[in-house]
Design a protein around this nucleic acid. Sequence first.
RNA 1: GCGCCCGUAGCUCAGUCGGAUAGAGUAACUGACUACGAAUCAGGAGGUCGGAGGUUCGAAUCCCCCCGGGCGCGCCA
Length: 564
Amino acid sequence: MQMFRNEICKLLSVFVPMDSQQIMADLETPPSAEMGDFAFPCFKLAKEMRNSPAKIAAELAERLPASELFACIEARGPYINFFCNRQRLALVTVHAVLEQKEAYGKLEVGQGKTIVIDFSAPNIAKPFGIGHLRSTVIGHSLYRIYLALGYRCVGINHLGDWGTQFGKLIVSYLKWGDDARLEEDPIAYLYELYVRFHREEVTEPTLAEEARSWFKKLEDGDERARLLWQRFRELSLAEFKRIYNILGVRFDSYQGESFYNELLADTISQVEEKGLTEISAGALIVSLEDQDMPPCLLRKQDGATLYATRDLCAAIYRYQTYEFEKMLYVVGADQTLHFQQVFSVLKKMGYAWAERCVHVPFGLIGFKEGKMSTRQGTLVFLEDVLDRATELALQIIQEKNAGLENKADVARQVGIGAVIFGDLSNDRVKNIEFDWEKVLDFAGETAPYVQYAHARICSILRKAEGWTSRYDATLLGTDEEQTVVRTLARFSDAIVRAAEIDKPSVIARYLVDLAADFNKFYHQCPVLHAEVKLRSARLALVDAVRQVLLNGLALLGIAAPQEM
RNA sequence: GCGCCCGUAGCUCAGUCGGAUAGAGUAACUGACUACGAAUCAGGAGGUCGGAGGUUCGAAUCCCCCCGGGCGCGCCA
């Protein structure tokens, strides 16, 4: 595709008072295929060339020399429309996919640069709820997307393994704890204790005070507190890793909040030395009044640190360690202000790289029946969602493909794929209402739709052995074939765009488009029963689609079963 | 009260740093399996882009105001 764009720039730059970068930027994709593959709008030229855009377009189209890459260059209203030479486009694209295989679509724009991605970050002692899925799945996908662009990626799971909640947990455990139950199902049990704490806190206000003091003890290194904390942490982490395994998610670092304990004092004194702090009502704060923001709290009255302190410290540590080009925080939109504050303090401290820290927010998950609350115990467990989706997938396989061998594995891939895709396919900034029916709907714009297209292709390829030897992609001339080719050629564009705006949904949309294009082709054009030469060409096209669906799903962290 | 985000077809959502006739899915209806997998495809129907101004050759997109919803606003994370 880039090859065609470059050619347009070369052609136009001779006649147009713009440099090739500007031309490239203005170049757009027309709304429909009848208007060609690229369009160059002439509005901006109108003033300078003292003529109407339509006339300029007409004149330019007339004067542009013929190019073998384009079958036709013509003016339509204020646009110059470029129609790619179909044979060339098919040839170049199909070849590139089949040649590069899993590397197709990848670029090297990020060579030598590092992206740090902070995502998932569940709280120890709280179950992995459906709410954590968003951060996990978006972060993981961005990781794969940046990797595909050649960046070095560092995925950090900033575990919520420190903070006042541990005071609460310790109090609960000392009062009501049962060792056997803790071993048996640590997360569920810790969660139960956590919920109970908040229930009893209402009638027993001293509990909150006790919890605060236990957290303070923990920070001061009290051995008993320390041991309990460590146990809670280990048990929880093992459970999280089990779930990450199911989701296919990995991290390069599990350095959570507690990791920064020893560094906090140094961070605070750094901020103090720069004269940014003041004492307000007994707490140590950085005023952000000049930015019209509430102050950033670094230390409470009782001397204990806060979330912001640890985030500040972590950012500094990470820059020293990784010298990132960019650091992404994949955290809910409800924490927007928090990150603005942290970034502002970093800036005030004189760290220029604060500009490279980006909060990647996402909307919250709501429920029809009121709100979900960890404290009240009305959480939807991620694992229940995954299990039910898998179950439904298995049921459908039972109906449609009873002879399938590894049903259980495929059902997992399809069910979990559906859940992940459901979360990634829409713009992340929007709130979503959790709805079992939607989660378990496998028709239309879903992962199973994309996976199904992939499985179908695999089925065709299984039935056609030995075709790879020779094919002539220039035979792919029908509209259906061309549409598929065009979409294949656009894959890199989708990856670049997804990274530009940090939205995996771009890839998800692209995959639905590609699968839809393939399905139309599939219903319109016979592959195996086509005339020999055409058959080879179509098999090559279909194999290219298979490859790109596979590559694209991988960017989302979704499996592509060969049968389903 | 102040700040941030969202508002597009009955429902769920796309809409490429302002561009050509605003597109999908879903639900309902009609049609296609003795053609490579019907988790699919084809078809019609469905819209004052929340409302009113403004900038521009041109606005769903940018600016201002209003309405509706979500979130946040010093010792939670």
